[in-house]
Design a protein around this nucleic acid. Structure first.
Lengths: 349, 349
DNA sequence: GACGGTGGCGAGAGCGCTCTCTCCCGTCCT
DNA sequence: AGGACGGGAGAGAGCGCTCTCGCCACCGTC
């Protein structure tokens, strides 16, 4: 069954409606300057024939694709370790849908894939790219720049700090971390520890920076390295307890880390929050709600980040499409857009 | 910066290499019948010019797109509630990449989106579709059939049971459930309860069926309705304990449900697994590992499902492309492919 | 040495669409 | 009433590629 039926072309519609191809094209693309009577006839013909424009033919001449690539390094990030990326995708998808754009997903597994992605992007299959680049030394951003495609990054890229032609969207990791630590301090805690994430990711580095903003004189013994996993959280928590048995609060770089820390604290007989208060980051569900006790944490609007990324890109594309076709980075928009975070209070702090 | 540079065309390469367009095309597409010397000259020209074929132009004539749509109903399924879908995507992506196909992600939010998706699929933008349709009354499958596109479903579709032109991949929900319940029985438990998932999803229905396979005479009081969430698990567990305080085992339809049940059991002072043994389903990480006690559960190869779906689809496409162009469902492959599950023993049973 | 065969290459015709340019006809102005 | 004007519609030229033909040179055959 199926595609043997040749799909109707513009030509066929034109013939049926008794007009020229140009007129059908005008109607289909919602252009002005077609008398209502004719337009109606065309619309009916389209309906009857079940005509759907051939995107390939259209792209060939317009050079637009109504498609956007989403590029993500798959294994090395937490991208698939939690619903984080999925939620961003959701936001992106909603926004793209609203603009009739398609979402082409490019997942890279490793170095070998980079060439493929570069080729694809350079191949002019998409109008723009949304790139998730969480690592400092990620080659992806370079590739994308090379492809000369309008691009918006997800998460602050670690390289070229000062450049303002780099558009990215991030949540306020540093500010959120400050809020978390201030909350602990506000609780009267004086020996606040921090378990970091992998510091080659800007989100982890920024959270550490936020910690230091509030505790500039923190004993180095109060900072332990984690890796955004609960196993890492356990390890770091043990380390901290050994070094500083007197600690009375922990700010964990994310919820998974906090969950691991919580387990170790219980195992060592510390009561949470009485003896040690714990704050996480992400408000990753269901983990944050189901720890024991439920986790006080910093929530970020992940879906909102996705939406915003897409919106910035699309806006840039629209701008480019219009007058002085000089394309490039979707400027004008604030080059780095930081979304606020909110502290969610549960039982752990 | 950027795309102002006109990308080189076949023509340009041909001119530079001093051959015809046809020859360049042959070389680029790896066809036979070009003498090595010439081919080499062409390759060099391609290299020098940085030529990348224009996919739109190519599709226009070949009617192939080297792209596959992945369609998923986003809100109503657990698709984004856990990393389940993400893992399938990962598997799909790997397989598609290996075949040089792109992944176009179509997320639907509700009814309004169906028309859009239908139009897109019918619009001949992609060579085939992978559809996740977990609900009995999902209109998506109908749409896809209407579009006349080769399609593979993820999860057993609830409708048209007997049809063998429907290709789908699912894990062995029923068999896995049987294993789980048998395990509990093997532990000497005699009053085994089951918390179901939403029964309009085939996976939940199949797991219930598996439960009944092993416990055909189970008291109806031993079955409570859940919804694949931990909240639902809590509610159902309370209900079960009220109705049958003597129960000594619970098979939960998924891990989240089991996590909820575990919490209620603890709250009610039942020891797990001593008083009540608990088995989940999915081996959803990190949840399954981080419950207290860690969860015995049924693992399914989720990424493998994704890979297999993609593989079946691509195989079907290849077949169609060849001789009697009669397209349609990628037949020949077993129409329903069921992947095995394995029981993962942890502390809860 | 003339013949058919074969394999390498080029010419050219589209694929389905958009978009400019031109033509035509109705309207308004004088 | 005649001419200038303008808006609506059609003709036609591509967009960059693939693929079928047909040409030509070169091989082997008798």
């Amino acid at each position: 069954m199926t595609d043997t039926a040749p799909r109707p072309t513009l030509e066929a519609v034109a013939e049926r409606a008794g007009v020229s191809r140009a007129t059908v094209s005008r109607v289909v693309n919602g252009a002005q300057g077609v008398r209502d009577a004719l337009a109606e006839r065309v619309r009916r013909a389209v309906e009857e024939l079940g005509y759907v424009p051939n995107q390939a033919a259209r792209s060939l001449v317009t050079r637009r694709h109504d498609a956007v690539a989403v590029v993500a390094a798959e294994p090395e990030t937490r991208v698939f370790a939690d619903p984080y990326f999925a939620q961003q995708l959701r936001g992106i998808s909603k926004e793209l849908t609203a603009h009739d754009s398609q979402l082409v997903l490019l997942l890279t597994e490793g170095r070998e894939d980079h060439a493929r992605v570069g080729r694809y992007l350079a191949g002019g299959h998409v109008d723009g790219a949304l790139v998730f680049s969480l690592h400092l030394d990620d080659p992806l951003p370079g590739l994308v720049r090379g492809a000369g495609l309008p691009t918006v990054f997800g998460g602050r890229p670690g390289w070229d700090e000062g450049r303002d032609d780099v558009v990215y969207v991030d949540s306020d990791n540093r500010g959120g971390a400050r809020d978390a630590v201030r909350h602990l301090v506000g609780l009267g805690r004086t020996r606040v520890a921090h378990i970091t994430g992998p510091l080659d990711q800007t989100s982890a580095a920024d959270r550490l920076a936020g910690f230091h903003d509030v505790r500039p004189d923190a004993d180095a013994g109060l900072v332990a390295g984690g890796d955004f996993t609960s196993g890492g959280g356990e390890r770091a928590m043990r380390e901290l307890l050994d070094r500083r048995p007197d600690l009375d609060a922990v700010f964990a770089a994310n919820d998974l880390t906090a969950a691991g820390a919580l387990r170790v604290l219980r195992e060592r007989g510390r009561r949470v929050p009485d003896d040690v208060a714990v704050v996480g980051f992400d408000d990753m569900l269901p983990v944050a709600e189901e720890t024991d006790p439920p986790l006080t944490t910093v929530r970020q609007d992940i879906e909102g980040m996705g939406r915003l990324m897409a919106r910035l890109l699309l806006r840039g594309l629209e701008r480019d499409a219009r007058p002085g076709r000089d394309a490039g980075a979707p400027a004008e928009a604030p080059s780095g857009t930081i979304l606020p975070t909110t502290l969610v209070r549960r039982a752990s702090a």
